[in-house]
């Protein structure tokens, strides 16, 4: 396979740049997906029937921790890609690993919150509002979970193979995915939690 040395390794072949371009389109489709979920949420947010509403349910502290972890992890994955471009394998793996750990932390808090919600009488079947809340958060959470598994497998490949066309490409694409999840979270934080608490 020809390697184009004038570009960063992740763009180093036609196949690689196609994959990155394809992933951007995939993210476009993901934006459509999350927009639909947000629309569903906005339509149903006031239809909480006899169940609790957002103001009663949400607590800021956990959410702030989640936001902190995810924003920081978006920063560390950026550092990981930067290290990769400099060819520094160990720092890259450290930052990448940190990203995944923070993702795990985020997930831990989110799952605890879900348990609290259910404990407070807001399960997925309580009302249209809780259904849409759980599905919106759950879809994002499922993306994060999938990202952690996917990222772990990439980390393992980087560890074994070092920076190759394939691993550099995968790591970069993973960073795009992770930033995207961060952006979605910012929307969830602002339009679900902050708006719900107001």
């Amino acid at each position: 396979m020809k390697i184009d040395a004038t570009k960063p390794l992740e763009y180093g072949s036609e196949e690689n740049s196609n994959k990155i371009f394809g992933f951007w389109i995939f993210l476009g489709a993901e934006i459509a997906l999350f927009s639909t979920l947000f629309t569903v949420y906005f339509v149903l947010v006031n239809r909480y029937a006899t169940g609790p509403n957002g103001t009663e349910l949400f607590e800021l502290s956990g959410v702030l921790w989640e936001t902190f972890l995810l924003l920081t992890s978006s920063f560390t994955i950026g550092l990981a890609v930067h290290s990769m471009r400099l060819g520094l394998k160990k720092p890259m793996m450290i930052f990448f690993g940190l990203t995944l750990l923070m993702g795990l932390g985020f997930l831990g808090i989110e799952i605890t919150e879900f348990f609290t919600y259910v404990h407070e009488g807001a399960s997925i079947s309580t009302s249209a509002f809780t259904s849409s809340l759980f599905v919106l958060l759950g879809t994002h959470g499922a993306h994060v979970s999938f990202g952690i598994l996917w990222g772990a497998s990439i980390l393992l490949q980087v560890k074994r193979q070092g920076f190759t066309l394939a691993t550099a490409n995968k790591s970069f694409i993973f960073s795009l995915y992770w930033h995207f999840l961060d952006v979605v979270w910012i929307f969830i934080f602002s339009f679900v939690y902050l708006k719900g608490l107001m």
Partner: peptide, 10 residues
């Protein structure tokens, strides 16, 4: 009308 499932309404 989005609100016709909420508490007060009921």
């Amino acid at each position: 009308d989005m609100e016709n499932g909420n508490k007060e309404h009921q």
